[in-house]
Design a protein around this nucleic acid. Structure first.
Lengths: 327, 327
DNA sequence: TTGAAAGCGCTAACAC
DNA sequence: GTGTTAGCGCTTTCAA
């Protein structure tokens, strides 16, 4: 068996409660005793059992992080940042992938809820109704989704989408397509609304979707894009954009000569691609850090904390996949 | 406070132990009682507290997964697979990123050890000596590193490296470089050994490194590669290869016309790159699943389980970044 | 400043 | 088949 508080107590000739205090309320214990206890603990290799501690304190010092797809390059930087920030605050994080499945997402939240102080829901696929019911079990912070009454971190794609449409119309494009994402995606809806209003009067907007948020989804959409006769395309994310460019190439269309393509995420594959992908930057790392801090703040204050809404800016990065419309 | 076993017991008119059995040993309880208890539990929204259960059973049903860098595209597929496999076995997983820092890695293992039944160490940066000491605290399975007496999952990169060198020499390359990875990387050493033996007699092998395992590391190495006068390069991973190709382009060298470049990982950026990257496939998802299964097997058997060594095959995928040497 | 005792949610002998 | 009891490792009153 591992070394417990009791071993330390016996070895250092004090009561267990004194050992406990040495770790959780050091100022309440005599300096001499404290150093002795600490020395013994060190010698024995004692490490407090956080799960046992959680049983009495009600604080697990764990967080849950639920994402739709770990392998989607959008998430790893967010996971990395969240996890680093959590560790900074002395928290560990469970990471779970829902495979884009709402039922699994719910099951995960429920089994995790007792083991964590809060859950970070990233681009959830669950309905708002279910989320609102579940929040009674465990505090949430939601990333990339607007849920009434819940603390939320939003990356304002609308901003970037508007800039993208303006960029395209500025280059002379008069017929532009929007490749939407999965149904229920807040990001997709935001892009739709922003693109519609930005295009209004300047260009015709053709909405194509829903599309699988993957390279394959983009490749699959190439035919429809060509058929629609647009010269510019704003895609749900970089993967879709990259897939589309590939699909267009197979159809004999070149980017940016024949069509201009814009993605969303500023992911590594997009930066490395030829042509380098023009894209909308998403502050994923900042969102991860902020989500953790908001979640921890909510945990600290208990349920009656006022929900916060953090809006992070996004922006258009023009690279090589967009150019002037051909005469 | 959340609903506990006691609430369910009171509500259904049985003792807590009966409720406990209903969940952990259903066959020991009368069918009628069981259904009643289950119904009450359902109605109350009762969920067993796994942490509390762990206190008595000694099984947390949690696993730790420690990687050097979540954002490195090599890891997400492994994390995703491991996590999915764990869930299949009713386990949750803590994911932690060490930022390539051995000290942090050790600290993470130690703080996590009490909360998990085992730890998956992926491409650890810790010295074997430290790992061997730590294993007393918690069962390990190591991925991509050979540690004596520890269960290990290896992706046999030597195999792929040999194939890569043969491929290059077959194309007429007589001077080939190996861009090594971080010091202490087992993968890097394996590649070195395999490349050396495969090149022997057929080509001269120039070893350049260590290199940062990132795009930047590859770009930074471009000058040295050109200076070395090689015509073919095997890189530590895809990111380095991609960075190198970019760096070479800046130096006026084109791939595969002037130089052939091979990566390792078969990552998404490599597949999307132009030229498509020739690379060594790493069965990361399979490794993740297998590591979880081996770890759980070890956990089940206790400390006296014989260490296993799983070797997964790797292979060369020839795409567009390699070609015949120029006359 | 320290000790004693109760209890967090649950399981596991053991008894009935 | 079910209840009783003790206890997992730790914190937290309450006394001393």
């Amino acid at each position: 068996m591992a070394v417990t508080i009791r071993d330390v107590a016996r070895e250092s000739g004090v009561h267990v409660s004194t050992v406990s205090r040495t770790f959780s309320a050091p100022h309440l214990v005599n300096a001499e005793t404290r150093t002795r206890v600490l020395a013994v603990a060190e010698g024995l290799g004692y490490r407090p059992n956080r799960a046992a501690r959680a049983l009495t304190t009600g604080r697990t010092h764990n967080l849950g992080l639920i994402v739709a797809d770990i392998a989607n390059p959008f998430f790893p930087p967010l996971i990395k940042a969240a996890q680093a920030q959590a560790r900074e605050r002395d928290y560990h994080v469970f990471v779970a992938d829902t495979d884009e499945d709402p039922l699994l997402e719910q099951e995960l939240i429920e089994t995790l809820s007792k083991q964590v102080d809060g859950v970070l829901l990233c681009s959830p696929r669950l309905s708002n109704r279910v989320i609102e019911r579940l929040r009674a079990q465990v505090p949430f912070v939601v990333v990339n989704r607007r849920v009434k009454g819940l603390t939320t971190v939003l990356m304002d794609v609308g901003q970037g989408a508007r800039a993208a449409i303006e960029h395209l119309t500025g280059l002379g494009h008069r017929r532009v397509a929007l490749l939407t994402g999965p149904p229920g995606s807040w990001t997709s809806e935001e892009m739709h609304a922003a693109a519609t209003s930005a295009a209004s009067g300047l260009a015709e907007l053709v909405v194509l979707g829903p599309n699988e948020p993957t390279v394959r989804g983009g490749t699959a959409a190439a035919g429809a894009v060509v058929a629609s006769g647009v010269t510019g395309v704003l895609c749900y994310n970089d993967l879709v954009a990259l897939g589309l460019i590939e699909g267009l190439r197979d159809l004999g269309r070149s980017v940016p000569d024949d069509l201009s393509v814009v993605g969303v995420d500023d992911s590594l594959p997009g930066r490395l691609n030829r042509p380098k992908l023009s894209t909308i930057t998403m502050p994923t790392a900042a969102a991860g850090r902020m989500a953790v801090d908001l979640l921890l703040a909510a945990v600290g204050q208990g349920e009656d904390a006022a929900p916060t809404l953090a809006r992070l800016e996004t922006d258009l990065v023009v690279r090589e996949s967009t150019g002037p419309v051909r005469p």
